[in-house]
Computed example of a mutant assay.
Amino acid sequence: MPLTPLDIHNKEFSRRLRGYDEDQVNEFLDQIIKDYEAIIRENKELQNQVAASQDKLGHFSNIEETLSKTIIVAQEAADELRGNAKKEAQLIVKEAEKNADRIINDALSKSRKVALEVEELKKQATIYRARFRALIETQMELLTQDGWDSLDNREPRGIEA
């Protein structure tokens, strides 16, 4: 067990002949007591500072560990978010491609339908023109027949002069 200032203060030495000067020894012991007390106080303060530093170190270690875990979680969340965004973008692109294909197919179908209708209308126009020409030619034949000339020379019936 280490010495305390009280142990030093209460220490008594036996007396001998031709021993040390008692006043000098007492003064020296008083100085030792003062220095020893100062060292003990300083040691206590340093121990308190070490304990406080260890507490702070523990606190900062906990903060560091928490921050590390938080960073890892944030990185994982960012990676997951990036992956989800990529998947969603791919789905959007596929959906857009499907819509584009559908629109193109609809347009092609309508274009074919219109082309068929145009062809049908051309055929009907050709038939109509042929029939109209035949009608006109028939009417022209009627007009050019000899029977019309005889009608022009006859007198009107029922009107007598």
Score class of each variant (00 low, 15 high):
Glu64Gly: 00
Lys56Val: 01
Arg41Ile: 13
Ser53Tyr: 09
Ile39Gly: 05
Phe60Lys: 02
Leu29Gly: 01
Glu65Asp: 12
Leu67Trp: 02
Leu57Lys: 08
Glu42Pro: 00
Glu45Asn: 13
Ser68Pro: 00
Gln31Glu: 10
Asn48Cys: 08
Ser53Leu: 15
Lys69Thr: 14
Ser68Lys: 08
Ile39Trp: 07
Gln31Asn: 09
Ile63Trp: 01
Glu37Gln: 15
Asn48His: 15
Ser68Asn: 11
Val50Ala: 07
Gln49Ser: 14
Val50Lys: 13
Ile32Cys: 05
Asp30Thr: 11
Lys34Thr: 05
Tyr36Arg: 03
Asp30His: 11
Thr66Glu: 14
Arg41Val: 13
Lys69Arg: 15
Leu57Phe: 12
Ile39Arg: 11
Lys69Trp: 14
Glu65Thr: 01
Gln31Val: 02
Gln31Gly: 07
Ile63Phe: 00
Asp30Leu: 10
Ile71Phe: 12
Lys69Tyr: 14
Asp55Pro: 01
Leu46Asp: 03
Glu64Gln: 03
Ile63Met: 06
Phe28Thr: 07
Leu57Arg: 06
Ala38Trp: 03
Gln47Met: 12
Lys56His: 13
Leu46His: 04
Ser61Cys: 03
Phe60His: 03
Glu64Thr: 00
Ala51His: 12
Gly58Val: 02
Phe28Cys: 08
Glu37Met: 05
Ile63Leu: 10
Ile33Trp: 01
Gln54Glu: 15
Asp55Leu: 12
Ile71Glu: 13
Gln54Pro: 00
His59Gly: 14
Phe60Asn: 01
Tyr36Phe: 14
His59Gln: 10
Asp30Ser: 15
Glu37Asp: 06
Arg41Phe: 10
Ala51Glu: 10
Ile71Asn: 12
Asn48Ala: 15
Thr70Arg: 07
Glu42Cys: 03
Asp55Trp: 08
Thr70Ser: 14
Ile32Trp: 05
Asp35Lys: 06
Gln47Lys: 15
Gly58Ser: 11
Leu57Ile: 11
Gln47Ile: 04
Ile71Thr: 05
Ser53Asp: 08
Arg41Ser: 11
Glu27Cys: 04
Ile71Trp: 07
Asn48Trp: 04
Asn43Leu: 09
Tyr36Asp: 02
Leu29Met: 07
Leu29Glu: 03
Ala52Lys: 09
Ser68Tyr: 07
Lys34Asn: 05
Glu45Val: 09
Leu46Ile: 10
Leu29Ile: 09
Ile71Ser: 06
Ser53Thr: 09
Ser53Asn: 15
Leu46Gln: 12
Leu46Gly: 02
Tyr36Cys: 01
Ile40Asn: 11
Glu37Asn: 11
Glu64Leu: 03
Lys44Gly: 03
Ile32Gly: 00
Ile33Met: 07
Gln54Leu: 12
Gln54Arg: 15
Ile71Val: 06
Glu42Ser: 11
Arg41Leu: 09
Asp30Phe: 05
Arg41Thr: 13
Asp35Leu: 14
Asp55Gln: 07
Ala38Lys: 10
Gln47Gly: 05
Ala52Pro: 01
Lys56Phe: 02
Ala52Ile: 05
Ala51Val: 11
Arg41Met: 07
Leu67Asp: 01
Thr66Ile: 01
Asn48Pro: 00
Gln31Cys: 04
Ala38Arg: 07
Ala52Trp: 03
Gln49Met: 09
Ser68Gly: 04
Glu45Met: 10
Ser53Trp: 12
Ala52Arg: 08
Ser61Thr: 05
Asp55Met: 06
Asp55Cys: 04
Asp30Val: 04
Glu64Met: 01
Ser61Gly: 03
Lys34Ser: 10
